[in-house]
Structure formats: structure tokens, C-alpha cells
Write a protein that binds this DNA or RNA. Structure first.
Lengths: 256, 256
DNA sequence: CGCGCGCTTGATTTGCGTCAATATGCGTGG
DNA sequence: CCACGCATATTGACGCAAATCAAGCGCGCG
């Protein structure tokens, strides 16, 4: 019962310095359309601080599979996700792997108070980041709202992790896959919220292998459950493209 | 494949007001021997603030099975655990249950920024608490270190939750049980730390049902794995009493 | 005492992992 | 253009680990 196989990784960073214009009522251009300024941690910053942070920031584009941080490597930079999906992984010495979290824009990446991370961080899709050195954040640390934002994101991640513990520990394969589809749907289209919208369509940002590693299943089981959900008319699957046809039954299957 | 059964709960609070002496260099007597003052959140407080907090505090003793907070009930008080073990649970509409976290002294209990909790909180053993109203903490909120302590505990809980996601999602029953035993051992006797000590003995603070709910297993499987670990000489079990005879092989089984 | 409860142990079933063969899609080079 | 390789996905047959079903034991308690 040893699951999870080795997978190859690539590592390419495309770096590009950030433009320095700082008008539009004092807000850096980099930031004006950035989600992190509203829902992310930057929302806690005053325009002046935003300028300071933006000055130290660089925008990166990573391609799928790029590792941001390996297990137990030192971290010296933090980042906000601008787009794409990042997976947090843990693995056993024998290669079994578990995805312990998925991060979407405008989540904050990095580990306060700890020089090294116990988890791997990898781009699941092409990802663009706004990253800045640890020191810059530390200088801003006294901003009352900043640490609070961080705490709030951390609490949210904790809730999510616990939710997935339930899913992974107690749900059946079909329920797991349904739950996963809803997770993705809600993150692709936040307007879906918790309520039941009629339908949704999107491309899965994860391979079957990743989905398996997230749900504690094998790729074969994930595949089978997807085709079964399709046969039963809850969804339609063609490769990565998925349509949720019956959100009601799907949410029901996923279990409240 | 529907696991988890209904269980009965009791609900008895034994309340007792806190003594008001505030000498010993300004530290409330209630606090002088309290672990939370060192490793917990109270460590961030100045003696003056400690007095303020202690004045608003009451000590409670709960018996095993008492619910602190039900699913989705409003919370108006926070607490530090003085002794005992508290389990955090989630459950599905059909009764399946998952324990999503265990808290030991001197952990902080409560949910900042949220009026209600999505998880159940229940005493797994007799528990004693030092609890205080939400407002008191909010008044102290500006203390620079307090929120940081909270963030640090939350980050630690997040790490733990993710560690258990790996355990629940990818490990075999035997590995799960071994991991669990090590968790308990390390919390009963913190000197064990991460290193391999020769042996340890303790009473399990959880029933087999709870262990199953924590690991995503049935009680029967937990029981079988325990007797097997016993037969193989890694541990010795008699009811709740457990001795870890071979920490090395145990840690090895649990998987780094 | 007898009942309930927690736990163990055994027999049986089954969901999902494993192994293996076969698509399907995509980039590369002939 | 098709041929080829490679990675990802699907599908089927089979086996096993853990769930389910079912006794039975020890113990505390009304």
C-alpha cells in the first residue's frame, strides 16, 4: 500500500524588475490592480509603506513544476501570488507524497518566524509572484494591521487544512473528488461562494497525480471517480476540462 | 464505507473563582506556576497586564466528554489549557467524525476574529482551564507580543494539521498508530523531543474510538494494530497503559 | 446480579491500491 | 505530412488492507 511515484521537476525563474512609477494617488502601479492590495496582506499597508514594499519587490513568473522552496531549505524571501496555483507538499522518505495545501491569488507565501520550512512549495500551474525580501517585511512588521492580516490568513489556512483532514480521513473516493471539484470551482469563480450556483466550467489546474496526492488517492482511482461522476451526469470531463452540471448533487455528495 | 458512530456527551462545568492575591513580584498567584506564562500566550504580557487578565479569569474543571463549544455555536470566552487533553472535531451530517487537532497544556483555546467556530471542542480527558472573556483579550490586543504569540501558536497548529494530513492521507494503519503513539509520548514527556529516547510509558489520553477518529481508522483496526505492535515487541499494551519499548523502530515505522 | 461500555478477536466483504495494457495528446524531427 | 517518443489519462483484472459484521470478554455501576 505504498502510493505516490517520483515526478520530475524543472526550475526556471523569469525575473523582471518592477516599474517605479508611483502615482495614481500614491499607489504604486504595480499594486493598483493587484488583488493582494484588497484581499491580501498589502491591504493593511498605508500608501507610503506600499511604496516602500513595492520598491523592494520583484515580479517573477514561474512555469509549471518549478519549485519555490524545497523541503527544509532556507527561505529568505516572501511573496504574494498574483496568479496561478501553488501546491504545498510533504513527502515520506520512500516517496509517498501528500499535498497539504493549495494556494491561490492573492495568498501570501512564506513562513514567518521560521528560517526553514518543513514543506515543499511548488507551482502547480504557471504562477506569477510579487516577491520581496524577508527584511522588508520585518521592517514593516510594526504596522498594526499587517501581523493581523497574517494571522487571519493563517487561521484561514488552518481551517482549510482541518477541513481537508476530514475529507482525507473520512470521506469515500467519490466524496473526495466531489469536494475537490467544488474547491477548485469556488477558487476559480469566487462568486460561487458557498451557495449553490447552477453550473460552472473550468480547466483543472492540477494533474490527476496531484489530485490524488491531495486527496490521498491514486491517479487511477481519481480517474475512475471522474468518469463515474461523468457517467452519472453530475459533471462532464474531457481531459482537463471539467463542467459541473449538477452543483446540487455534487455539493450533496461532497457532504455539507 | 461509513465510519464513526454516535457517542454520548456529558456537560458539567465546575467553576471556581480565582484567588486575588497579587504578590510574588507582581505576578498573580494563579499564574506563578502556570505553563501558559512561559510557553503560552501569557508570556507576552507584562505583570500589570497579567494582573488585569488574571482578575478577569476563572478556573474551570471539566470532566471527560464535556463539550466546550459545539459546532457553529457562538464563542464569547477564550481559555488556556492548564492540564488535560482537548480534542477538536469535525463531523459529517451522517455522523462520521474526524478529530482535526489535539490540544495540550499550555495551548490557547479560542478563535480570534470569528464569532463562531466551525469545529467542535471537547474534553478528551478531565481538563482544567483558565478562561477569560473575549473582551479582556481584545483590550490587551495592542500588546505587541500578544498577537505574535497567537500567530506563532496558529502557525504551529497549522504545521501539525499538515503533518497529520500526510499521516491520514498516505500512511498505513500501522504507521498511523505508531505516529500517534509518538505524538502522545512527546506531549506527555516533552523531554523526549524529537530525538530517540530509549523508552517511555504512559496512559493513553484517548479511547480507541478517539484514536480511530483521529487517524481515520475504525476502532477495530486501531485495536488490531496495537496488539500487533505489542506482539512484535515495539510496545506493550494493557488497556490504556502503553509502554514504548523500542522507540527506534517505532519512530522508523512512523516514518521520519 | 445484569446491563452497558470499552476493548479485543475472528470471519467476511469490499473499496481502493496495484499491475498492466491501451488510449490520447503534444512536441520534435524526419 | 506522418512517425516517434514521452507524459498523462483511461480502463480492466486482480489482490490486499482495512471496513464491516459478529461474538465474546472484563469491568464498573445502578
Amino acid at each position: 500500500m505504498v502510493v505516490g511515484r517520483d515526478r520530475q521537476r524543472r526550475n526556471k525563474w523569469k525575473t523582471r524588475p518592477v516599474r517605479q512609477d508611483i502615482h495614481t494617488s500614491g499607489i504604486p502601479v504595480l499594486c493598483v490592480s493587484c488583488e493582494a492590495r484588497h484581499r491580501g496582506i498589502c491591504g493593511a499597508l498605508e500608501p507610503v509603506q506600499l511604496v516602500e514594499l513595492a520598491r523592494a519587490s520583484t515580479k517573477h513568473v514561474l512555469e509549471e513544476g518549478a519549485e519555490l522552496i524545497g523541503d527544509a531549505e532556507p527561505i529568505d524571501t516572501y511573496a504574494n501570488i498574483l496568479s496561478g496555483v501553488v501546491k504545498l507538499t510533504k513527502s515520506l522518505p520512500d516517496g509517498r507524497q501528500q499535498i497539504v495545501g493549495l494556494q491561490f491569488a492573492p495568498d501570501f507565501l512564506g513562513r514567518p518566524f521560521s528560517e526553514e520550512s518543513a514543506i515543499g512549495v511548488e507551482a502547480a500551474t504557471p504562477v506569477s509572484l510579487c516577491s520581496f525580501p524577508r527584511r522588508t517585511i520585518q521592517r514593516l512588521k510594526d504596522t498594526p494591521g499587517l501581523e493581523r492580516r497574517l494571522l487571519m490568513q493563517t487561521l484561514r489556512e488552518l481551517d482549510e487544512a482541518r477541513g481537508w483532514m476530514m475529507t482525507v480521513g473520512r470521506k469515500t473516493a467519490a466524496e473526495k473528488v466531489a469536494s475537490f471539484l467544488l474547491l477548485i470551482a469556488r477558487n476559480i469563480d469566487p462568486t460561487l461562494g458557498e451557495e449553490v450556483a447552477p453550473a460552472a466550467a473550468f480547466d483543472l489546474p492540477l494533474t490527476r497525480a496531484d489530485i490524488g496526492d491531495f486527496l490521498g488517492l491514486t491517479i487511477e482511482t481519481v480517474s475512475r471517480q471522474l468518469t463515474r461522476l461523468g457517467r452519472d451526469g453530475l459533471i462532464s470531463v474531457k481531459g482537463r476540462r471539467v463542467e459541473l452540471l449538477d452543483m446540487g448533487r455534487l455539493a450533496d455528495l461532497a457532504g455539507a
